[in-house]
Simulated assay, not measured.
Amino acid sequence: MNGSVPEMRRFTTFVLIAAVSLFSACGTLRSLNTGTQVDEDNTIVLPGDAREANNSDGTTIWDAFGPQYNEQKVQVNRYIWAASLDVLNFLPVQSVDPFTGVILTGYGTPPGGNQSYRATVHVRDPALEARSLSLALQTRNGRSVSPETLRAVEDAILSRARQMRIADKKL
């Protein structure tokens, strides 16, 4: 009987941890699916606290575990972000993180090309300027591309971002 009490405690602890993990994952997904807003300076604003719409007093169980968060600003220029995905659409996207402004792609071949590339894009600033964009291109054998090729892709991304901004202003 004595040997089963520690096992029972371990099982109870395991069930408790599993339940908390499950509920926290649901809360994270819910908060990510609430949508985004863009403020005047083209900064993406994500809601920091996901409240349940059917909850009458607006509180959730997660309010007991931490401070109340307001909105969190993400310092990423939306035009450069969208233009990067648009220009590099031939590359399979492996990972995107709007909080840090990083886009990681897998290997892909551009239309009409025979060399395979992968890209890492870092949008570092909310301004629509060249300094906001950091791009790294790599070939399948692990070598970096020539500076001219890198500059041409950066220019294509920045040109597309400017086109998107102009199109938005005309609406």
Rank of each mutant, 00 (worst) to 15 (best):
D168G: 12
P126K: 00
F99W: 04
R78D: 14
I61L: 15
Q94D: 09
E71Y: 11
Q115L: 05
V76N: 08
V45G: 09
A64V: 12
N141K: 02
T120N: 06
T36Q: 02
L133D: 09
W62H: 01
I103E: 07
N70R: 14
T139C: 07
D63N: 14
R51N: 08
T43K: 15
R160Y: 00
G101I: 02
V102R: 04
A119P: 02
T139P: 07
D49L: 12
Q37S: 14
I166W: 10
A53V: 01
V45A: 14
M164N: 02
D97Q: 09
S31R: 14
N141I: 12
E148W: 01
A53T: 01
S159E: 10
P98G: 00
A82V: 09
T36E: 08
A161P: 07
N70I: 14
P92V: 10
R118Q: 06
G35C: 14
T105R: 07
E148D: 10
N55F: 05
N114M: 10
V145L: 07
A119Q: 07
D97G: 03
P147S: 03
R131S: 12
G113C: 01
I80V: 08
R165E: 12
N54R: 14
P126E: 06
F99R: 11
A50R: 03
T59S: 11
S132W: 03
R124M: 07
N42K: 13
T109V: 15
N70T: 13
V121S: 01
A161W: 06
S134M: 05
E129F: 11
T36N: 02
T139K: 15
V102I: 03
S159C: 00
F90A: 08
L150N: 03
G108W: 04
S31V: 15
R165S: 07
R160D: 04
A156W: 11
R140S: 13
A53K: 13
A167K: 13
E154I: 08
Q75D: 08
L158E: 12
T109D: 04
S31L: 14
P111Y: 05
D155R: 14
G112W: 11
N42L: 13
Q37P: 01
G35L: 08
T149P: 03
W81A: 01
V102W: 05
T105A: 09
D57R: 10
Y117W: 10
L128F: 11
D168H: 15
R143G: 01
Q115K: 14
D57S: 10
L137W: 03
G58R: 11
V74S: 12
L104W: 09
A127D: 08
I103F: 10
A156L: 08
V76S: 03
G108P: 06
G48W: 01
G101H: 00
G48E: 03
Q75H: 02
P92H: 05
A64G: 10
G101T: 01
L158A: 11
E148A: 01
D155V: 08
D86A: 13
L88W: 00
S132V: 05
D97V: 04
P147V: 08
P98C: 00
P110R: 09
E71C: 07
T120P: 04
L104S: 05
I80R: 06
P67A: 15
S116T: 06
D125L: 04
E129I: 13
A152K: 13
R118W: 00
W81D: 00
S159P: 05
